[in-house]
Each structure stands twice: as C-alpha cells, then as structure tokens.
C-alpha cells in the first residue's frame, strides 16, 4: 500500500484551503468584483444598454467636487459617526459593566435579552414608534420636557436637532449589540487577575483602568471599527424617520449612502452614483485602517 507523501499537517492545511475556497469565491465574485465594477462604471454615463454607455473619464469626480449635496452628506455622515460611535461605546460599556455586576445569571440573561431586543426590531417599526414618541403635539418625550418646565421641541423637524435625534435612535438600536459584545469580553477576563490585584491593594478604579480596559481592548477595537463602518453607511433609519422627505428637513439628515441611493435609483444616474460610492469606499477603507493602527494594542499579562 502506498502512503501519501504529504505530511498530516500539510494535508490538513490543504483541506482547510479547499473549504476556504467556497467563501473566497463568494467574496471575489459577489463582493470584490462588483466593487471594481463600480470603479469602472463611474467613468461612464449610465445607460441600461451597455453599448450606449459613454466614456466620460473623471467627469463624475469633477461633478462631485461641485455638488453641494455631496459636501452636505459627507459632513452629516461625519457628524453621525462622531456622535454615534463614542456614544454607543461608552453607553454599551457602561451597561455591560452594570450587567456584569448582576450575579444572578438568570436575571443577567433576561436583561441582556431586553437590551438586545431593539437590535433585532425592524427599522420601520422603530422609526414609527420614535416619530410618535418625539412628536411635538402628542409625544411622551415632549410631555416630559413640559413637566420639567422646558419648551417642547419638534425633534425630527427642526433642522438643527434632526441629525442628533436620528443618531440617538440609531445608538439606541445598536446598543444591545454593543452590550452583548462587551459582556462577552468582560466575562473572558480571568477572575484571578482581579483577585491578585485586590490582594495587592488595588481599588475599583484601578482595577477598571489597569485590568478591565486593557483586556477589553480587542473588543473595543472591533466595536469601534464595526460601529464606524455602520455609521458611515447609515441609511435605513434616516430613510424611515423622514420617509416622504428623505434626508430632510432641508437635507439636515442626508447621508452619503442615502444620497448615492437617490442619485442611482431616483435619477437613474448610476455612473455618478458609482463615483460617489468609490469615494465612500475610499473613506471607509482609510478610516478603518487608521483606526486599526491607532487602537490596536497587544496586551499580555
């Protein structure tokens, strides 16, 4: 009988590659290939018939530089990210710490399920409920403001309040996911470290600063990167919170992703939309790379 000349390790590796081939093919053809197509598309004026697409070179990129709505949506998207990501990290960590302190496991699971519920609630339903809660005439939020002697606000209609309000709704919806991540991260930190530190006389704050935070770093980085990408691609909640005036009032909630959608499918100007997509892609890629560089630290004890 002939024995295989390959070692066991090599054979295992080969099998791993075979199994990886399928997802790799998926990513190449469903994800990466279309991305390159967008790049190619952005150089043409769109037509449903490929033979009628006119090559325009970098014209769409020049048009982008002149388009006030591109500038506006970029600024808005940046604002959403700057408000949303830190807010959901801080709140997510805070709630996870509180839940981690709940020692009865059943109760903790229940709370975790409650916090996770918004994450799996359809955005349309969330938008509907929030638009009523925030209503100037009938909303419970304004009821509370009035009770506190504060003036009522039309949160979603006021151009200077609409963006932070939408960001708040998104944070509320993402919070559960953050909590679950942080909770898992917290439970992965070995108890021994805390006990050892306590024996050495460390107080609560020191435990948090020197053990919890550093050991949560991988989770932090993951959350920050995923959260940032999510906010940079923000679309669904914005559309649903102002359905008949999408991105309104007065473009105050317009995001890049929504603008791309409007240009592509409201105007059938897919060439220009592809150019803005390339811009968004470059922005997301560079921010993510910078984040990974700055935030990742190896912590070993």
């Amino acid at each position: 009988m002939k024995r295989s000349r390959l070692s066991l390790a090599t054979r295992e590796a080969l099998w791993a590659y075979v199994f990886l081939l399928l997802p790799l093919a998926f990513f190449l053809f469903i994800r990466i290939w279309p991305a390159f197509q967008a790049l190619w598309l952005s150089l043409y004026d769109w037509n449903a018939d490929p033979s009628k697409r006119v090559f325009v070179g970098l014209e769409h990129y020049a048009q982008m530089a002149q388009d006030p709505l591109v500038a506006r949506s970029l600024r808005n998207t940046l604002l959403y990210t700057l408000i949303g990501v830190p807010a959901q990290l801080v709140l997510g960590l805070g709630i996870a710490l509180l839940l981690n302190a709940v020692t009865r496991e059943r109760l903790r699971d229940l709370f975790r399920a409650i916090y996770f519920a918004p994450y799996v609630t359809p955005a349309v339903a969330v938008a509907w409920v929030f638009s009523w809660m925030l209503s100037a005439n009938f909303g419970v939020v304004n009821e509370l403001l009035r009770a506190a002697g504060l003036p009522a606000q039309d949160f979603l209609r006021n151009p200077s309040l609409a963006l932070p309000t939408v960001a708040g709704v998104v944070v509320w919806q993402n919070l559960g996911f953050q909590v679950v991540l942080f909770l898992a991260g917290l439970q992965n930190i070995p108890r021994d470290y805390y006990e050892a530190a306590r024996i050495d006389g460390a107080d609560g704050r020191q435990l948090f600063r020197h053990i919890t935070l550093p050991l949560l770093n991988p989770v932090m980085v993951f959350s920050a990167v995923i959260g940032t990408i999510g906010f940079l691609q923000l679309f669904t909640q914005v559309v649903n919170l102002s359905f008949t005036d999408q991105g309104g009032p007065l473009h105050s909630t317009l995001t890049v992703a929504l603008y791309i959608y409007q240009v592509a499918f409201g105007r059938f100007d897919l060439g220009y939309a592809a150019a803005i997509t390339v811009l968004l892609f470059v922005i997301i890629l560079s921010i993510t790379l910078i984040q990974l560089r700055l935030l990742s630290r190896r912590v070993e004890y």
Partner: peptide, 10 residues
C-alpha cells in the same frame, strides 16, 4: 395648521 401634526408617512 402645522406640518407633521401627525407624524409619519402621510
């Protein structure tokens, strides 16, 4: 009247 008296689409 005021806009958005009843919130939502329509």
């Amino acid at each position: 009247g005021i806009p958005n008296f009843f919130p939502g689409n329509n």
